[in-house]
């Protein structure tokens, strides 16, 4: 039984904290966390600006953002590759095939999700709370604080969601990371390479870790949303 043997070996690799498995998993985690945090720095203020302002084409902007929720990772990968390649406009930065390139790609991938979900989170704040606050004489700043306070869990859930998409993508890591062993190899690219080579134990071990991370993310999301 290939699957059973593979599974047993995979669990051995995880339990024994195999250095290669841990290194790859750690790198995946580090890159996705960084991407999610950097995307948050951009999206939370920008989302607030979009939400709290009335301007022409606001609906269009929001539907555009939502369209990009499901942008294919390989398209983002291709886009970043074309820009970062030495023959491309940002080639002088020399960051193609480095972890930095992966972070840039993953950020671009999850910015629409974070932005869109931030806007929905802020819109989801109950109108009556705001009306009550206003009638009690709250100032603009006080109102804004109130909205953010009310929406904080939904915003956090959005960040966690972005992280989930970043850690599970493969197209960007493969195309602009290059799957270089010990440098840009992450869980998903390692699984793809190892299984195409027919070495399923390492793939399975990494797959289990990825599912475990997804599980943790899910539990955290549920906790956040239940508050």
């Amino acid at each position: 039984m290939e699957l059973w043997n593979g599974l047993v070996k995979a669990i051995e690799l995880i339990v024994s904290l195999d250095p290669e498995v841990m290194q790859i998993a750690g790198r995946s985690l580090r890159l996705a966390v960084t991407s999610a945090l950097l995307a948050s720095v951009i999206c939370l203020p920008l989302g607030s600006i979009i939400h709290f302002n009335r301007f022409r084409g606001k609906r269009l902007v929001i539907s555009l953002i939502q369209t990009f929720y499901s942008v294919p990772t390989v398209v983002v990968g291709l886009f970043v590759f074309v820009f970062l390649s030495r023959a491309g406009p940002l080639g002088g930065l020399e960051i193609l095939y480095t972890p930095t390139a992966i972070i840039i790609g993953q950020m671009l991938l999850i910015v629409p999700i974070l932005l869109g979900l931030t806007i929905s989170a802020l819109s989801g704040v109950d109108r009556t709370i705001l009306d009550t606050a206003r009638s009690l004489g709250a100032s603009g700043v006080q109102m804004a604080v109130l909205v953010v306070k009310e929406a904080r869990f939904a915003v956090m859930a959005a960040v966690v969601m972005g992280f989930g998409r970043a850690i599970s993508e493969i197209g960007i890591s493969l195309m602009v990371g290059g799957n270089i062993r010990g440098f840009t190899r992450v869980i998903t690219t390692a699984i793809s390479l190892e299984s195409s080579k027919g070495d399923i134990e390492l793939s399975l071990a990494l797959g289990i870790i990825l599912i475990f991370i997804a599980l943790v993310v899910n539990i955290v999301m549920n906790r956040i949303q239940q508050r």
Binding site: P45, I49, A144, R152
Partner: peptide, 24 residues
């Protein structure tokens, strides 16, 4: 009012983010 609102929001968000970043 809008402008002051937005400024407030941005400040709070920035504080939130730096807090999260600091923790991790």
């Amino acid at each position: 009012r809008n402008i002051s609102r937005i400024t407030g929001i941005i400040l709070i968000m920035a504080a939130l983010v730096s807090l999260v970043a600091g923790c991790s």
